[in-house]
Design a protein around this nucleic acid. Structure first.
Lengths: 228, 228
DNA sequence: TTTTGGTATATTGTCGACAATCTACAAGCA
DNA sequence: TGCTTGTAGATTGTCGACAATATACCAAAA
């Protein structure tokens, strides 16, 4: 049965897809900083492919909001201004509230269990204030919750919005590590509301959680970057 | 000053962009039916360009949710199942509610005036039950409202969701022309709420309006297609 | 008749080449 | 010195060609 997976993989995986995933990963990991210019030939050479798949990947990532294309000048990792980030956070709050409501309505036991496991890990990490370890757990928590909503259109839109925010959000946690324990407490309250099936509460808590994130971003950007 | 516009146009317009816009238009107008296969060489020949720009446009439209790509088999206009349409409508309702709230808060007089003009036109058309004439007005009404929200991220997400729904929504109005007067009444109530700056009411009315649209879709699909 | 196998054709995936455009820098002029 | 102009190099935009894959068709066997 693993063979079926392999076949599907080969059927779906073109060079373009591979390149696209690689660039997306590098952007979201912060490896490619916002504003950086991406040179087609360089990326093509680095990955050992021609420019065509790279250009196609650029088009997809442009539509996804991760890249900005200027004709005859090149493509750049998108820079999200503070003002834009505010607007995106507002959208995310609405989507996340919806996720809370739907997840509370139809989360399945095994999904709940997985989320609780993540929260438990966060609890451990939160004591060390290790932002680098906390960040992926935070992403996973929200991702699992989104999946529990059971609405594919919602999940897709949520992911896109989160990706855009990741363009500037990475800074936040590193600069405000002291917020981690607060955030962890939020997550526990959210899981409990979802577990109880309290749609209204889950919706409100998640909405507020996002708005708090937005305020954390503001405070982080007001601060100077921490010394390296 | 017109020259500046022309220069900007040339700076931003690549063949890929042109092809992308053309295909998108043909999909949304119903010219290319959901499920249709798009052959690269055919489109390239029809537009007098090579396959490269067509392929890039495909990638972008795939990411936008209008096309589905199967490796080595081709690209197809996305088919939205009834179940998926339900989920998308649910997301749209949330976004549209947010649009109502924000528009009520910060719509500007000239924007309100434009929307009232559209509603007036709808009122005229609605007597003739002419779905073909009503459809674009309906799209414009919601588009103007979205713009009045002043949140660019919200506008972008809204447009994407509406585009996806247009893949199946076109059927609805044509088959249920008798709903046009009801829909027109909705629109007037919405404009009044926005004009009064009643955020809660505008949010609720728009949310309900979308949910009603969803139910209209269900009734339309239960009906047989009208005779041609 | 149905199914299997193979071949021809059509279509997509990838590549390298060339043209168009931009950028950086140096030479010339005020 | 400071500004303009022109040239060289680098980068992107577009194209046509070839390879890889899928599809349609036909023949042969069960």
């Amino acid at each position: 049965m693993a063979a079926v997976r392999t076949i599907e993989l080969l059927q779906q995986t073109s060079l373009t897809t591979l390149v696209q995933r690689d660039i997306e990963r590098r952007i979201l990991s912060g490896d490619l900083a916002p504003g950086s210019k991406l040179v087609e030939a360089d990326i093509a050479a680095a990955l050992g492919v021609s420019r065509a798949p790279v250009r196609e990947a650029f088009r997809a990532l442009g539509q996804a909001g991760l890249l900005r294309t200027e004709k005859n000048r090149g493509v750049f990792v998108r820079q999200v201004s503070l003002e834009e980030a505010n607007e995106i956070y507002e959208v995310r709050a609405a989507l996340e509230g919806m996720i809370g409501r739907l997840a509370a309505r139809r989360i399945r036991p095994e999904q709940l269990e997985k989320i609780r496991a993540v929260v438990k890990k966060m609890h451990v990490v939160s004591r060390s204030l290790d932002a680098a370890a906390y960040f992926p757990l935070n992403v996973e928590f929200h991702e699992l919750l989104a999946q529990a909503s059971g609405n594919r259109a919602l999940i897709a839109n949520y992911r896109r919005v989160v990706n855009e925010l990741d363009l500037c959000r990475r800074e936040t946690l590193a600069r405000n590590a002291e917020n981690i324990p607060l955030s962890t407490r939020d997550h526990e309250a959210i899981v409990n509301a979802v577990a109880k099936g309290d749609e209204k509460l889950a919706e409100r808590l998640l909405h507020e959680h996002v708005i708090e994130s937005r305020e954390r971003l503001h405070r982080a950007l007001a601060k100077p970057a921490r010394a390296a």
